[in-house]
Design a protein around this nucleic acid. Structure first.
Lengths: 119, 119
DNA sequence: CGGTATCCCCATTGATACTG
DNA sequence: CAGTATCAATGGGGATACCG
């Protein structure tokens, strides 16, 4: 933070924000977190994930899984059975999310305390 | 994480997600991060923040500052001068964001490396 | 089973103008 | 200076139907 002197160079600061944005975008939207959580308990098939997450439509599940796959957080594997089955699993890179999510969660819990306390 | 057995009790998991959501929501939107960043360099007046942040409208700045104030991350102070001046400053609680933002930033930087590497 | 294609709604944001 | 009011646009997400 200290190396970013916004008062003199706002452009520098914009650059500092970009990776933060990247991280936030990964978890953005209504369904990313539930999907990641569902998969932390092991690889699952499309329908299984769908059943785990209350209210998600096939459309959104498909879209979000694709997004996570593009970001190499989830691996999609097609098994050569009949009928074909597809399995989704968290990648090693995806597991690195856990620490960040824990940090967010801890801050969120502290924030609740703060808000509840002062009113 | 380990205490949340989604396969048996999806409701438990929803609860685990809530504080994470709270944290994400705080930084959500296009302008929260730039505003917070602008104020980390000291208290500023409305127009000063507005000038720091390229493209923000008065409407959005006003709205986002209110939001941050409600969440006790920013303190609004009206000085009894003429014409009245208003100063915004990060609160102690607001300063606790810095650690979380750093974590997000670090993950984001690692993520870039990962994505750039494997393709 | 594992998805797509279409259509629609509404919440967030932007643009612009105005005010105590 | 420090905002508010009003209206328009954009896009994320929902509902439903269909497909290989």
């Amino acid at each position: 933070m200290t190396e970013c002197k916004q008062q003199h160079n706002p452009e520098e600061c914009t650059k500092m924000i970009v990776p933060v944005r990247d991280a936030l975008e990964i978890l953005n939207g209504k369904w990313k977190l539930p999907i990641i959580l569902s998969l932390t308990f092991g690889a699952k098939r499309f329908k299984q994930i769908s059943k785990d997450i209350n209210g998600i439509t096939d459309r959104m599940l498909s879209k979000e899984l694709k997004d996570l796959e593009v970001n190499q957080l989830v691996k999609r594997t097609v098994h050569d059975t009949f009928p074909p089955t597809v399995e989704y699993a968290i990648t090693e890179h995806g597991k690195s999310l856990e620490k960040m999510i824990t940090e967010l969660r801890n801050w969120g819990l502290e924030h609740r305390k703060q808000i509840m306390g002062n009113n």
